[in-house]
Design a protein around this nucleic acid. Structure first.
Lengths: 280, 280
DNA sequence: ATGACGTATCGGTGGTGGCCGAAGTGTCGC
DNA sequence: GCGACACTTCGGCCACCACCGATACGTCAT
């Protein structure tokens, strides 16, 4: 009973005053050494509850797989995700509800389908930054089909709403060489960079400042282990390249490839060499 | 038994081929609708397992509290953390072992003490970026002592190895105004910024490029909801200000305050106005 | 030595949650 | 209308794990 009572009183009571510096239970803690307690005030607002709640959403294998799949930026149906993660539809449904409640996903009901999608660029950034901290450098693909598919993905792909893979990195590097992007001191579009977006791509500076989202961000690539351009600039760039048919999606996946027109255009605009960038 | 068998065969078998596009169990999935399965190859390397493993480390309230407390960049003993999170020492010990195994923390045993610390700037960045995605704008402090302590923290504090709070934001803004930092196009130190570090602070450019860590990074502040300077530049800056006694720690906590010498020095160097910045 | 203290290990307990199948609800097509 | 289909809800099962107290093991002080 003792243990039952303690756990039951802990769970609810812990919420408001868990990490409060004052208000320790001296009776219980005294035996364990109150003297060792840090005197100064700990971290002010207690975010531990929210942090753990958020982390718990990703702490399940199936939900994590869902989120990573959705990192392609498109909407998936519940059934597709269930098949992808190899769980029963009922299980997938429950997971999706939790992810939506948690604010990571949004849904759009359409007929008998339930389309889900990442809730926005912020969520994509969150997932990117967390996955960027996973050490292991990826596993080699098995089988011919998987190998070619994975090679295509390594060449170029979309990462939520911008370009990644060797293509994304090559574009980023070319922009840095031309002085459009500052990669030395951090990650930022230069003045000439903004002019280039306007002049070369017809993207005005206004279109680059969308709310709180940063104009330029570095996004770590899991195939290249290098940064590529993300943020509004990265999104607009990808958008425009698709529009002008300089890149094209391969099949229905997230892999993209450079078209012949794109090759010449990007060579002109950025001095991008398709072969040197490893895009052939 | 069916369910027992499935779960037991799922756990180990899932690891290598969970998210494989091919190799589905047609018999089982067929009934649930294989036709809806996305044709193209899903995300190439399956990171879902590692992602969920990492997230699980933070998915517990107590462990999350540990990590947030350790965000002050200093080493805590196991007992201190136990008292802080109000759990039994045995419980804290187990959590610490898990966090260390997971690579988030490192330990330094010293006599009968076990000091733990964040494993490095990368872990600090990870925690920052995750906590930055927590919506609620913090709760108001209760009580006078808590209020003054929290006010001091809001004025200025360390955030792992750099400065945060109004002080951190004000410094960042002042640097941006002076053209030392580019906040418009992203977040990067400019050429003049690097010169300033060398000339005004005596920090050579070499000291700013330490391995893979970015020179300048934006770190979102939970009190200000604004970005402040992080990365090697932020760390060196904080270090140097402490060295020159322009700022000083308040008590043993992570709060810092501007000294009189610091006030004049920063007014000269950056045009920083203590009052306008809300530091009084 | 001895006792105090910080921490680790172990066994046990209860709660949480992921999973499934079966049954139910709504939508589409015939 | 009628099935087919996508999804949801429910009940039940099982595994995991956070927690504690008791005990054990080091280290430090006396």
């Amino acid at each position: 009973m003792t243990s039952a009572k303690r756990t039951s009183e802990r769970a609810p009571a812990a919420a408001p005053e868990r990490a409060e510096p004052r208000g320790w239970d001296p009776g219980r803690r005294a035996a364990a050494g109150t003297a060792s307690a840090r005197p100064g005030p700990p971290v002010a607002p207690d975010h531990s509850h929210e942090l753990s709640r958020l982390a718990a959403l990703l702490a399940d294998r199936t939900r994590a797989a869902f989120c990573l799949a959705l990192l392609d930026g498109r909407a998936w149906t519940a059934g597709e995700l269930a098949a992808y993660a190899r769980v029963a539809p009922s299980t997938a449904s429950e997971h999706l509800s939790r992810l939506i409640d948690g604010g990571l996903l949004v849904e759009r009901r359409q007929g008998r389908h339930r389309y889900v999608q990442l809730a926005g660029p912020r969520v994509a950034e969150l997932l990117e930054s967390v996955t960027a901290h996973l050490d292991p450098p990826a596993t080699a693909p098995r089988g011919l089909r998987a190998a070619t598919a994975s090679a295509a993905l390594a060449r170029g792909r979309t990462c939520y709403d911008h370009l990644a893979g060797r293509l994304g990195v090559a574009l980023t590097d070319a922009m840095a060489v031309r002085g459009l992007l500052d990669q030395d001191g951090g990650f930022a579009l230069t003045d000439t960079g903004r002019e280039w977006f306007e002049g070369a791509l017809g993207i005005p500076s206004d279109a680059l400042r969308a709310g709180r989202r940063p104009q330029a961000r570095g996004c770590l690539d899991w195939t290249e282990r290098r940064q590529h351009l993300a943020g509004t600039a990265g999104a607009r760039l990808c958008e425009r390249l698709l529009e002008r048919r300089w890149i094209r999606r391969i099949g229905t996946g997230r892999a993209v490839r450079l078209t012949p027109e794109g090759t010449t255009a990007l060579r002109e605009l950025l001095g991008l060499d398709e072969e040197a960038a490893g895009l052939v």
